[in-house]
């Protein structure tokens, strides 16, 4: 199931009328456990506001008077509410109880996928389509207005920030990346110069990185068809991949998982065609 199709379970710690307050350390322990398990948690207390309710399922936890959880329902029938008394529960038991309710309500199970995907800064993006023509994994696409967008973020290769390296405006972020500006830090002039250098990697490597792979593959084919030395072909490909890995900060496991040079060529042409089509429609 796509990540976008799943519903979430919102956990509410209720400490108002009809319930006792939790000790601060118990509250912290329970909240930490639930957050580590991927849940969204709201603490309702006298001081301050929280975000309004939406149509998600709510699980209200509290140390209710008499150990009895109240019963209530949304008058509009839009929000599914459950109450659970947690008197005497430690953080493990709270987490286990919440997990049971999550499973019963078919809400999203979190943590199955590291959220690694490009985030576009549209203040900077010039819609040049370099990212679309670069990515071999179909992460990018365009909307009805031919505006670049991230369409298939779960196709993105974990820890690979290569597309952000080819963006001439440093408009592509990976918020979980180690360094700026890719992590979302403010872009500096120096960064832009560096990003330009990264784009020049394409020129340096002969048009674009995938073209380089194709070219090397062709050269290797003709040479190795004479020499019939598969090891040399592998060495040649590895040399090329090492150069790419260091130039684009692409994890070796991503490079080593790339398909055959022929498949790379096919995908690169497909991506290039998509980008070209979008650019053409923009000018019409």
């Amino acid at each position: 199931m796509s990540l976008k199709d799943q519903t979430a379970l919102r956990i509410v710690f209720y400490e108002g009328d009809g319930a006792q307050s939790l000790e601060a350390q118990d509250r912290f322990a329970a909240m930490s456990r639930l957050l580590e398990k991927g849940f969204a948690v709201t603490r309702v207390a006298g001081g301050g506001r929280v975000a309004p309710a939406d149509r998600a399922s709510l699980l209200v936890l509290g140390r209710f008077d008499g150990g009895r959880a109240p019963q209530a329902e949304d008058a509009h029938g839009q929000v599914h509410i459950r109450f659970q008394d947690i008197s005497g529960f430690d953080s493990n038991r709270v987490a286990a109880t919440v997990e049971t309710v999550r499973a019963e309500t078919n809400a999203a199970k979190h943590g199955d996928w590291k959220p690694w995907f490009p985030v576009i800064d549209y203040d900077r993006c010039t819609n040049c389509m370099q990212c679309l023509s670069f990515c071999l994994f179909g992460v990018y696409g365009v909307d009805e207005q031919q505006r670049i967008q991230v369409q298939n973020n779960d196709n993105c290769k974990t820890n690979c920030p290569a597309c952000s390296r080819v963006c001439p405006e440093a408009a592509i972020m990976f918020p979980k990346y180690k360094a700026g500006p890719i992590n979302g830090d403010v872009v500096s002039d120096a960064d832009l110069q560096r990003e330009k250098m990264k784009v020049d990697i394409s020129a340096l490597l002969g048009g674009d990185v995938y073209a380089l792979l194709r070219e090397r593959s062709e050269k290797a084919k003709s040479r190795f068809s004479k020499e019939r030395d598969a090891n040399k072909a592998l060495t040649e490909r590895q040399k090329c991949l090492v150069k790419l890995a260091s130039a684009g900060d692409i994890p070796p496991e991503v490079l080593m998982s790339l398909p055959s040079p022929e498949e790379i060529a096919r995908r690169a042409e497909e991506a290039m065609a998509k980008a070209q089509a979008a650019l053409t429609k923009q000018t019409l």
């Binding site: 979430a8 603490r43 998600a56 985030v119």
Partner: peptide, 30 residues
């Protein structure tokens, strides 16, 4: 988080905004 829990204030906590964004979680709108 500890100081938020020790305070008397109400607050929302989420596990990971990136994951919610990737999932286009409707809660982000809220």
């Amino acid at each position: 988080l500890k100081r938020l829990c020790e305070s008397g204030v109400a607050f929302d906590a989420v596990a990971d905004l990136c994951e919610m964004s990737a999932r286009q979680d409707a809660s982000l709108k809220r």
